[in-house]
Computed example of a mutant assay.
Amino acid sequence: MVDVGDLNAFLAVAERGSFRGAARRLNVSASGLSEAVRRLESKLGIRLLHRTTRSVVATEAGARLIERLRPALAEVEAALEVVDTFRDRPAGTLRLNVPVVAARLILPAIVPDFLARYPDITLEVAAEDDFIDLVAAGFDAGIRYDERLERDMIAVPIGPRVQRSATAAAPAYLARKGRPEHPEDLLSHSCLTGRFGSGAVLIWEFERDGEIVRVEPRGPLVIRTGATADLAVDAAIAGTGIIHLFEDWLRPHFARGTLVPVLEPWWQPYSGPFLYYPGRRLPPPPLRAFVDFIRSRRPG
């Protein structure tokens, strides 16, 4: 008989393309995973993975096994989750993939109360702004904005339902360079700009009285969207240039006077983020508890 644990180990290694990566994902040793895969290959009498010093790739037989194994193991997991619903309290691990702004501005108001209510649940959060395949990456759910949601996902509103991107600069910068009165004036200013992980430039979009203006800013600092946004904020406070970021992120600096709102009548509102997860099967108990918790906090 083939051990289900060995099958899970093989699948994790194949999906990660690395014994070390799979070991971190499963919180086990790489040597233990290597032994599990060797044991599985020995029982089946065929090599499933090509191993080199740089990568691990499924053989043709391994690839065919993966195709059939994923849905089969998903069904096993779903069957066990049905049993788990009979527990008094949901337990297990909930893995979320969220953008940096959600980790900074949304989850802090949610996570402590959720974990206090469900002490048997462990929450793992990865913050990154690049779009990923949730299932392939081993996450239960994610947080994204509606323009980046896949159509086969279930989406639940989380956090503020309306947000704005704010434009701001330090008083010293405005005293030195002057204050822009129209978004197109930004083209003659030093702007602290960003790029997505794909390399695409972050376009600044403004709206007033039905008029939409999109600006591709230029300036001395370009950041990768996400965690490096704090560097751009610090640079803006130091007077390096004009920044364009989530209003909630910049509001504390407005209150302290280290940054001053710029072009505020043009700040464009947009829909807030969503918690999303695959709709192909019942969510595991930790995710179901989180979804119910989020819904219970929504007004009305």
Score class of each variant (00 low, 15 high):
residue 208 R to Y: 00
residue 212 I to Q: 11
residue 237 I to L: 05
residue 226 G to F: 00
residue 208 R to C: 05
residue 204 W to E: 15
residue 246 F to R: 08
residue 214 R to S: 13
residue 203 I to Y: 00
residue 201 V to R: 11
residue 223 I to Y: 07
residue 204 W to N: 15
residue 224 R to T: 15
residue 242 I to T: 12
residue 218 R to H: 13
residue 205 E to F: 04
residue 232 A to V: 09
residue 200 A to K: 12
residue 224 R to L: 15
residue 218 R to A: 15
residue 233 V to P: 09
residue 226 G to K: 02
residue 238 A to W: 00
residue 246 F to D: 12
residue 233 V to D: 04
residue 217 P to C: 01
residue 203 I to P: 00
residue 206 F to V: 10
residue 229 A to P: 04
residue 227 A to M: 03
residue 243 I to R: 07
residue 233 V to C: 06
residue 229 A to I: 10
residue 232 A to T: 12
residue 199 G to H: 01
residue 234 D to M: 05
residue 226 G to W: 00
residue 235 A to H: 04
residue 245 L to D: 13
residue 234 D to Q: 11
residue 244 H to Q: 10
residue 216 E to L: 08
residue 224 R to M: 09
residue 215 V to T: 14
residue 225 T to V: 14
residue 224 R to C: 01
residue 225 T to I: 14
residue 207 E to F: 02
residue 227 A to H: 03
residue 236 A to P: 05
residue 200 A to G: 07
residue 222 V to P: 01
residue 230 D to G: 08
residue 225 T to A: 12
residue 223 I to K: 06
residue 216 E to W: 00
residue 238 A to N: 12
residue 235 A to S: 11
residue 220 P to G: 11
residue 239 G to V: 09
residue 216 E to K: 10
residue 215 V to G: 09
residue 245 L to K: 07
residue 226 G to C: 02
residue 203 I to K: 05
residue 231 L to G: 03
residue 213 V to N: 04
residue 205 E to V: 15
residue 231 L to H: 10
residue 210 G to W: 00
residue 204 W to P: 11
residue 245 L to N: 14
residue 204 W to S: 15
residue 208 R to T: 12
residue 238 A to G: 14
residue 201 V to Y: 01
residue 235 A to I: 02
residue 216 E to A: 12
residue 221 L to V: 15
residue 232 A to E: 08
residue 232 A to N: 10
residue 215 V to K: 10
residue 244 H to C: 05
residue 215 V to Q: 09
residue 234 D to H: 06
residue 221 L to W: 01
residue 223 I to P: 03
residue 211 E to Q: 13
residue 233 V to Y: 04
residue 242 I to Q: 01
residue 212 I to M: 10
residue 233 V to F: 03
residue 240 T to G: 06
residue 228 T to E: 13
residue 212 I to Y: 07
residue 219 G to W: 01
residue 239 G to K: 06
residue 231 L to K: 08
residue 200 A to S: 14
residue 242 I to H: 01
residue 201 V to I: 09
residue 214 R to N: 10
residue 233 V to R: 10
residue 216 E to S: 09
residue 233 V to K: 08
residue 218 R to I: 10
residue 221 L to F: 06
residue 237 I to R: 13
residue 205 E to W: 04
residue 230 D to E: 12
residue 217 P to T: 07
residue 208 R to G: 10
residue 226 G to R: 01
residue 243 I to H: 08
residue 217 P to W: 03
residue 200 A to E: 13
residue 246 F to G: 11
residue 243 I to E: 12
residue 235 A to C: 02
residue 200 A to L: 08
residue 209 D to R: 10
residue 222 V to T: 13
residue 219 G to C: 06
residue 238 A to P: 08
residue 201 V to W: 03
residue 215 V to E: 12
residue 220 P to N: 02
residue 225 T to F: 01
residue 235 A to W: 00
residue 202 L to K: 14
residue 222 V to D: 02
residue 229 A to Y: 04
residue 225 T to Y: 00
residue 220 P to Y: 00
residue 205 E to T: 15
residue 228 T to Q: 13
residue 213 V to R: 05
residue 234 D to T: 12
residue 232 A to G: 09
residue 245 L to R: 13
residue 241 G to T: 09
residue 211 E to N: 03
residue 200 A to D: 14
residue 219 G to N: 07
residue 204 W to V: 14
residue 235 A to E: 07
residue 217 P to I: 05
residue 201 V to M: 09
residue 215 V to H: 07
residue 236 A to W: 00
residue 210 G to C: 04
residue 206 F to D: 05
residue 230 D to L: 03
residue 200 A to H: 07
residue 216 E to D: 11
